[in-house]
């Protein structure tokens, strides 16, 4: 029996889909059997980021409405044998499936996979409820912006009410802006949100480049974001991995390692 992890944020555009794609790939890279589920019905992106758009035959709504079996809708990744994706429908909307249906699918997927990574749509409405229904735990993605932190806080509140344990990923940190005080730093965000930090991901142009190429960044070991995602994947498996320094020269951020003790 595997574990289902929902990747959510409240705010749009903070990197939920990128994080889902990279963590799914990173876990597959570590030899795990992984299925990624895109629950952003109507605005599906995960297939594009993974470069699997042209292989989709059936989707999540087809499974929910009984037009196909779950296994038929799974798309196998082109790089890994043990990495699958359940795509969302592009023509329907969030109300065409219910949380119970998604939950059943996730339960089914957990039987055959070590990890089920659920990519949640932005917002806190039906799409959010669908996505969190089957999850065992949550990863909250935020960026060092007030608006993103505010929305993350809202989502953490909702997840606490449904007793879902959640951990934090701070995405797109720019070391030079943090240094000059123009960007919230990791400590500020952790103080406000008061949940365990799972990892930080530096802002990296290679992420955009590789997303456009349909190739998750994590495959490119020269990218700093890739290393960050690989570290996060190892932490999900339970390894203790120190937080990477934001800048090449280390030392300044060693104090953030204490968050890992909890995380």
């Amino acid at each position: 029996m595997g574990e289902a992890i929902v990747v959510t944020s409240g705010k749009g555009g903070v990197g939920k889909t990128t994080t889902s794609a990279n963590l799914g790939t990173a876990l597959a890279l570590l030899g795990k059997k992984v299925c990624m589920v895109d629950t952003d019905i109507g605005l599906r992106n995960l297939d594009v980021v993974m470069g699997l758009e042209n292989r989709i035959i059936y989707d999540l709504v087809d499974v929910a409405q009984g037009r196909c079996r779950l296994q038929q809708a799974l798309v196998k990744d082109k790089r890994f044998d043990e990495l699958y994706m359940l795509p969302a429908a592009q023509t329907k909307d969030k109300h065409d499936v219910t949380p119970e249906q998604v939950k059943d699918m996730v339960m089914e997927l957990k039987k055959d996979h070590d990890y089920v990574i659920i990519d949640c749509p932005a917002g806190i409405e039906q799409g959010f409820r669908n996505a969190v229904a089957g999850a065992d735990r949550a990863i909250i993605v935020t960026t060092p912006e007030n608006a993103a932190v505010r929305d993350a806080d809202r989502v953490i509140g909702l997840l606490e009410q449904s007793q879902l344990p959640s951990k934090l990923i701070i995405n797109r940190i720019r070391a030079n802006m943090v240094k000059s005080g123009e960007m919230l730093d990791v400590e500020d965000i952790c103080n406000i949100l008061a949940i365990d930090l799972l990892g930080i991901v530096p802002d990296d142009e290679k992420v955009i480049k590789s997303a456009n190429a349909g190739e998750p960044t994590v495959m490119n070991p020269s990218s700093r974001a890739a290393i960050a995602y690989r570290n996060i994947a190892r932490r999900i498996l339970g390894d203790m991995v120190p937080l990477m320094p934001l800048e090449e020269k280390s030392g300044v951020f060693s104090r953030f390692r204490k968050f890992l003790g909890i995380g």
């Binding site: 505010r150 929305d151 806080d153 809202r154 509140g157 909702l158 606490e160 406000i192 949100l193 008061a194």
Partner: peptide
Amino acid sequence: AIVRSGQTVEHEGDLLLLGDVNPGG
């Protein structure tokens, strides 16, 4: 409690909260 964004605590009388009230709470 941590009173997070979107959450409201209402009470008749005095309130002592052990925890934070975040922006939006």
